[in-house]
Amino acid sequence: MTDFGAAFAAAFAMVAGFDPDLAEIVGLSLQVSLLAVGLATVIGLPVGAAVALFRFPGRTALVVALNALMGLPPVVVGLIVYLLLSRAGPFGVLGLLFTPTAMIIAQVLLVTPIIAALTRQVVEDLWVEYEDQMRSLGAGPARALTALLWDGRFTLITAVLAGFGRASAEVGAVMIVGGNIDHVTRVMTTAIALEVSKGDLALALGLGIVLMTLSLAVNAAAFLVKETAQRHYG
């Protein structure tokens, strides 16, 4: 139990001392994960809604695939992105390996299926309720798509939060494509992994506490926004 006490002490010391290294790591973590989730949302919402609304050959297979991709192993995504971005790979000339951009790309790949799959479910359920009304007003699936996304916005916040949770918690992908380079690509999770490998479990757990607190804060903020807005809009 001494480890837990030391962990909380370490976490408190880091936060209370405004440790600049910690601030940098936290900042990069948020930057990478929030941007990745933003991009994944921009891609995932329309894709999910389109899969929900349109009927096309292979749709069922796509739905199953999307659901399965929610559980994509981060290490595999990391490896794929590494092979793509490596100098020997097809996008090697861009020189993106071991940069925050590479980490964002990997997290977008991880998070987009989650947001798309959850969006599909939300929009499909809404469409059951709305279809007659929307068709009657003259809106087929294509024109109803954005209205449905907008009306599902409170539920979709949960989908986006699920994506954020995944992005901020994963270590496998960012470790491989980011390289855990000090001051460049070191984020909360890779820093934790590094401290574990140094055997400094208290510091690792302290970082973990900071990460969980951040995650809790983001979720609480989103929850408050959602609840307030939902009470207002019904």
Binding site: Q31, L35, G38, L39, V42, L96, P100, T101
Partner: peptide, 16 residues
């Protein structure tokens, strides 16, 4: 909004 996020992502990359 989509454009803004893409631009932001690029800015983060280019900063370094």
């Amino acid at each position: 909004v989509a454009l803004m996020i893409v631009v932001l992502a690029l800015v983060v990359t280019q900063a370094r």
